[in-house]
Design a protein around this nucleic acid. Structure first.
Lengths: 127, 127
DNA sequence: GTCCATGCAAATGCTTTGCAGCCAG
DNA sequence: CTGGCTGCAAAGCATTTGCATGGAC
């Protein structure tokens, strides 16, 4: 159910968020169990973990993709930019490292936060 | 001195590491002071903070650059790959977001860890 | 009965903060 | 004297872990 919950959203939730959502269907779960299962799923490669200030975020979208993080509200959006693996060879030959992949992190202001109309408060996928 | 210490290295140190190095010249500093100053320097834009599992890393290199993280030892290396700002426009027009910048995170095995000779243990910029 | 995942709570690890003291101006 | 930065220790979060319980087989 932890896996289902993370897969069913694109908000890159924190453990806390997953806990609250799983608890709706399974009122007796504990936060510890959610953590244990998240950890397990990451080890098995069924989820990807993203380090983030204020707590890890989990991503059930295993396809290669890039992200955009809003510097105002903190929301992380998936992008459809193509993933160009051609750079791997260039980096490899320049460094001697074995490049397995790469991820582009864009940052800026999302549509809502760049609108001058309203001031909004940080959004943490914790709602 | 905290700023100097972070600027003088390219290991993307943790607060702990900075603390230990500053303490060599200033034996009475406390970890709290190091944290306070790191936080201050990040707010002032003199250092960049990178969220990472097991603790933030700090980077005194303010020029735009990309990173390579070794999945074996955890070391983070700076790359000289050019930063192509042309993608910003494409992402902007597709999403409506105001793109301020981007960072590419490559991952794989560094030269040392991909050598089959020896097995090495995780390295955390804590030495 | 055995095993394994769980709830619960205590423990851990990183980071922040309250407070009193000290130094520079 | 005053303000600001500091050491120290306690507090705060996110996350992990030990242990006893409980259900599946």
């Amino acid at each position: 159910m932890v896996l289902e919950t993370v897969r069913a959203t694109d908000v890159h939730p924190t453990a806390e968020w997953v806990f609250r959502h799983v608890r709706r269907r399974l009122p007796r779960v504990s936060l510890g169990t959610v953590y244990r299962n998240l950890r397990l799923l990451v080890r098995e490669g069924l989820l990807v973990e993203r380090a983030d200030a204020g707590g890890s975020r989990f991503d059930g979208n295993l396809s290669e993709h890039h992200h955009f993080t809003c510097v105002e509200c903190g929301r992380v959006f998936d992008l459809r930019e193509p993933v160009r693996r051609t750079v791997h060879l260039r980096v490899s030959s320049r460094t001697g490292f074995e490049v397995l992949g790469h991820r582009i992190e864009f940052y800026g202001r999302c549509a809502i936060c760049s609108s001058p109309r309203k001031r909004r408060r940080p959004w943490q996928a914790r709602a």
